[in-house]
C-alpha cells in the first residue's frame, strides 16, 4: 500500500504568537515549529498500517527550506521518504493543488492528513484534494481499519459517530484517537538523516485569497470568585459583563 501523508509545519501550540510589519506577518523569531498535531495522528496511523500490512509512507509538506526539520521528524517517526514542495503555502487551494499534482504523478492508495492545521485551522485541504483527484474525502476521521480492499472508517458527527465503509483510493482528514502519537526513537532519528527528501518546484497556481492583517484575542482578565450561595450574582456577571448568556 502506498500512503501519502501531508504534514503542516506549525508553531508549537504553547507558543506565544506575535506579529510584525503592521500586524500583517507572523513573527517567527523564537518560535518552535512542529508537525501539526492532527497531522501527527495521521502520520502515526499511516505508519501503523504500513508496519502491519507493508507498503510505503511518503511525507509531504508544502513549504520553504525552513520546514525540512519537520519533514525529517516525519521520517524519524517512520515515513520512508519525503517530498517538499518548495513554496510558501499561501492558501488552502494553493496547497491542495500542489498535493493533487504530486498524487497524480505518483499514484497513492490513500492520502492522509490532519482534519485541519493548527495555525489557520481552515480544514479545507482534504476536501479540495479529494475533489481535484476525484476521490472520496472523509473528515474528521477517528478510526481507520483496513481489511483487504475494504476500508472501515469512524467519523465524528454532531452528537455521535458515523461508521462508513469505503474503498481505495481515498483522502482522510484525521483526528484523535485514530492512533497514539509516535515519539521518534534514536534509530529513527539516525536513519532519518539518510532517508530521501526530494525538493520539487511547485506547479503554477494563482492565489485565490490574499491576507489582511492579524489581531490577537483580547488579553485574559482576572478571575472572579463568586460564593456558591450567590448564584444570581454569577448569572448577572455572565449576562452583563462576560456577555456569554
Amino acid at each position: 500500500m502506498k500512503i501519502l501523508v501531508c504534514i503542516t509545519h506549525v508553531p508549537d501550540t504553547t507558543s506565544k504568537i506575535a506579529f510584525m510589519n503592521s500586524d500583517t506577518e507572523l513573527n517567527k523569531a523564537g518560535l518552535t515549529f512542529v508537525i501539526g498535531p492532527y497531522d501527527d495522528y495521521a502520520l502515526a496511523r499511516a505508519v501503523e498500517i504500513k508496519e502491519a500490512q507493508g507498503g510505503t509512507v511518503t511525507a509531504l509538506n508544502v513549504g520553504l527550506a525552513e520546514t525540512e526539520p519537520t519533514l525529517r521528524k516525519a521520517l524519524a517517526i517512520g515515513a520512508d521518504d519525503a517530498i517538499r514542495i518548495d513554496a510558501d503555502p499561501t492558501d488552502a487551494y494553493f496547497v491542495a493543488t500542489q498535493i493533487a499534482d504530486i498524487a497524480r504523478k505518483n499514484g497513492y492508495d490513500a492520502i492522509f492528513m490532519g482534519r485541519e492545521s493548527s495555525d489557520y485551522n481552515g480544514g479545507q485541504v482534504h476536501g479540495m484534494v479529494g475533489e481535484m483527484l476525484g476521490m472520496p474525502s472523509f473528515s474528521p476521521v477517528m478510526k481507520v481499519e483496513i481489511e483487504g480492499t475494504k476500508v472501515t472508517l469512524a467519523r465524528e458527527i454532531e452528537g455521535g459517530k458515523e461508521y462508513i465503509e469505503a474503498s481505495f483510493p481515498l483522502v482522510l482528514g484525521c483526528q484523535e484517537p485514530i492512533a497514539e502519537w509516535k515519539i521518534p526513537n534514536m534509530r529513527g532519528i539516525m536513519s532519518a538523516r539518510t532517508k530521501p527528501l526530494q525538493v520539487i518546484a511547485p506547479v503554477s497556481q494563482e492565489n485565490l485569497t490574499s491576507g489582511g492583517h492579524y489581531e490577537l484575542p483580547p488579553a485574559r482578565s482576572g478571575c472572579k470568585f463568586i460564593d456558591a450561595s450567590e448564584a444570581e450574582k454569577l448569572i448577572d456577571l455572565l449576562k452583563n459583563e462576560a456577555k456569554v448568556l
Binding site: 524519524a76 515519539i183 532519528i189
Partner: peptide, 21 residues
C-alpha cells in the same frame, strides 16, 4: 559525530513530548 544540531533538537523534542503527554 553521529549527531548534528537537527538530531539533538529532535531528541530533545521527543523528551518534551514524553514530558507533556
Amino acid at each position: 559525530a553521529h549527531l548534528d544540531r537537527e538530531a539533538i533538537d529532535m531528541i530533545l523534542e521527543s523528551a518534551i513530548q514524553i514530558a507533556d503527554n
